[in-house]
Design a protein around this nucleic acid. Structure first.
Lengths: 295, 295
DNA sequence: CCATATCTCTGACTCTAGTCAGAGAATGCT
DNA sequence: AGCATTCTCTGACTAGAGTCAGAGATATGG
């Protein structure tokens, strides 16, 4: 059976079995939209959910949301009050009955999941759960989109900031960006270089920069993968894409430096054809230097 | 993370990624219901689809179906003609434009599946597909429902017929039900015994019978699993459930006979605590006899 | 041949989801 | 203080999905 048929078959079985779950049972005699909303309000811990945040998250029309809330208020499950600091903004909060109803949704969703797991033996269940984890991880990985972004762009800035924070927590001696060799934005812009950011659901979850040095080898810098998306091969993907960009921009060889505490990265460089070379840039925080000749 | 959270997480990722597929793109500017219908008509090979069959399969109201078909007819994608043999029945058939549109749906669905697979490396893709197969198999397994059924019931008859057909094709010397020791329905009815059938989507996909012999060991017979549902542990499940039924009906020991060509069954009996014993019933088609003491 | 059942179609509904254009209140900016 | 902006709400819609009660045509069993 070919790949596409396998995916379709998976699709059919899964939606039939799990789709029924969401639609039928979570509704509990109430329109699905209202249940979803109730769920989402209940998921925001503590002080209630701002309407504008709900609208954003569920992508609802403001009029539509308003009406849905009124229906839930009518059922006594929710009450909507002005936000304390800004009384244009309103906040939805579950009433005690709403909390109870939310818990009930929770329970019936649990029961439905149980309906899938219960008929299986312990071993089958364990295999199903691992396979689900694998599908979930790989489908998430395939939802990641990598694209070139201006280094001054908010997503690029956020990625680099996260990268520096990560270094500070991992390096034995901490990390201070001021002590590293600085890279002006322009060096990560074409034609001097490029900067790639990986997005998942619009959030940056990884980055990598490339800096050309004329006829000398180009330099790969700022390779970062968010903790939440590790183990999905995203590092390797960023490396592949930045190598492709390097080729496109005319580099025949790429180099990079790294710290001895970044063991996964070091292993990855080695397994992707990078050879260790002597210090080529005097970077104070580096312990290893690598080089790869591109096809 | 507990099991239920794992399933929910899986659920969220999968429906987001694959649900978008069905809804958004398969619609192609046409209401989803009509696309589904078009798809289903196209899926029936050759002579078109009888409306009553469509109604059954898609669980549609007859008025609703009628209107949907009219809309598709209006778009020139389908034409509906009376069935040649019974002109109360009508048959929907794709027009050449309908065939083209169906192929287009097919292609765009392929493209969306491609969108999931393409960003992955060859190895990741292979892992995703195997994990999908595993999820699909185990979720199908968990959708199987086993219940006691009267041996004269259509589902029981169909199961036993399928079982005999299977035996005929596997035994070296064929199989003729007339030559085996017959079992009147009543012996598979409580209090003399019981008969379990496994259903998947309402279709019988397995069965097993139990025949009590007073203080002597009870006998397990007619253990069958449809070819389409092998490798899901359904045989073991039927065995477990019939053993439980035996205990409930007061049997302390169960016995069974089997033919040497049924190697998977023999392996299963051994691994489920059955010990080989001498011929206890003189069944002409049997080569092995097993016994198990129940807890 | 007649009564009954089967199958499809039409008309008349209901519900849910969702969109769009403002109105009105509160806030922020200058 | 005055004006633009932000946020929520109301009214007035549209469209899809689905239900229900027959009507009309055709088959079938006695």
């Amino acid at each position: 059976m070919d790949d596409i048929a396998r995916v379709r078959r998976f699709n059919r079985t899964v939606t039939e079995r799990i789709g029924a779950l969401d639609d039928g049972y979570l509704a509990r005699g109430r329109p699905l939209g209202q249940s979803r909303l109730l769920w989402e309000i209940g998921a925001t811990n503590g002080g209630g959910a701002e309407l504008r945040a709900l609208r954003e998250r569920l992508e609802l029309d403001s009029g539509y949301l308003s009406r849905q809330l009124r229906a839930l208020e009518g059922d006594g499950l929710v009450h909507v009050v002005p936000a304390p600091d800004d009384s244009r903004v309103r906040v939805a909060r579950l009433t005690p009955e709403g909390v109870e109803e939310h818990a009930e949704l929770d329970r019936s969703s649990d029961a439905l999941v149980g309906g899938i797991l219960d008929p299986l033996t312990e071993r089958q269940r364990e295999r199903l759960l691992s396979a689900m984890d694998e599908v979930e991880r790989l489908m998430t990985a395939s939802a990641v989109e990598v694209r070139a972004v201006d280094p001054a762009d908010a997503a690029a800035r956020a990625s680099v900031a996260a990268y520096f924070t990560e270094l500070a927590s991992r390096f034995d001696l901490g990390f201070d960006p001021a002590h590293t060799r600085p890279t002006p934005d322009d060096e990560f812009r074409e034609p001097h270089g490029t900067f790639l950011v990986a997005f998942l659901h619009g959030e940056p979850v990884g980055c990598v920069g490339l800096k050309l040095h004329g006829a000398d080898p180009a330099e790969i810098k700022r390779l970062w993968v968010a903790a939440s998306t590790r183990g999905m091969g995203l590092g390797a993907r960023l490396l592949r894409e930045i190598e492709a960009a390097a080729v496109r921009l005319g580099a025949a060889v790429v180099r990079l430096d790294t710290n001895r505490t970044l063991t996964e990265a070091i292993a990855m460089y080695r397994s992707h054809g990078y050879d260790e070379i002597p210090d080529f840039n005097g970077e104070p925080y580096a312990d290893f230097w690598f080089e790869k000749r591109l096809a």
